[in-house]
Amino acid sequence: MTIPGSIGTGPVVDRHGKPLRALNQFDARAEEPVAVQDDAPPAEVLVTEHGTAAVERPRPGSRASGRVRRIGLSLVVPVLLLVAWHVATEVTGTFASYELPSPGSVVAAGVELATRENGPTFFTHIQISVQRVLIGFVIGSVTGLAVGALVGLSRLADGLLAGTVGAVRAVPSLGWVPLLVLWIGINEDSKVLLVAIGAFFPVYTTVASALRHVDPHLVEAGRAYGLRGTSLLLRVQLPAATPAVVSGLRLALAQSWLFLVAAELIASSMGLGFLLTDSANNGRVDRILLSLVTLAVLGKVTDALIGVVEKRLLRRW
């Protein structure tokens, strides 16, 4: 693409073949309005209707095939592991079934749990765990956002709180359990609260540091245009910190799953963490593997979902 009037693109003429008058900066007015001159956007950056740069987007066909290829590539290792697992248990018999049950028997355990008449089914375990993670994640990340914003924006709050919160953060997840049980009791609240504690810290840390490091030039420009307090936060500081906030949310969700298992390991009658301990006590290795694989898959799926949200949110950055 040749930009009219750009330097080094040969004779500079307008669409009538006359020398382009607008190129002369001493010439107040060009004969023909020339909309875009030599300081037009770089040729390779084309803007689509949605305002995203087309250059970052390869042809649709190659993009789709690229995605298929990536998914295929990421499945190679799990499939190989599954095959190796099957071979080691069913074919060669390297491991006894009480050491490492075969993939087939893990699936069978899942089916049995899912269809059983008495007691919580497999789906009940999943449902209650997902519910605890989501509620805890929302509470923890909203609180993390609020406290992080406070510490990131106010020097006073930073001085008062940053040290204490950092120390509390160092407490391991299981350390909270006795106190939560003592103060709140053995119920949903204590488990959700533990998950919330897990979700709080990644959001708090990333938000506080991102807000502290927002480009001071942008903040000053915002102030110069009459933005202050909440309007400055909402229009300049939070949007500038959004990429960091989103990655903090992603970390928080992962940490929520870790804290969930801690919450369910002790004092629960449902959930994947309970299934894990219960099976360990009963020597059901197949169910242990079942709950581990389920936790891995659920964690990955929720992470992928938040990844989609991240992509949509950050399209403008």
């Binding site: 030039h217 942008l218 000053e220 420009a221 102030r223 110069a224 245009y225 009459g226 202050r228 229009r235 300049v236 949007p239 500038a240 959004t242 403008r316 950055w317």
Partner: peptide, 18 residues
């Protein structure tokens, strides 16, 4: 900050997400 005044800086200082 005065409403009657408007400032342009040496750098454009535009908000990159807008």
């Amino acid at each position: 900050i005065d409403d009657r005044c408007a400032v342009a800086f040496q750098e454009p200082r535009l908000l990159p997400w807008r």
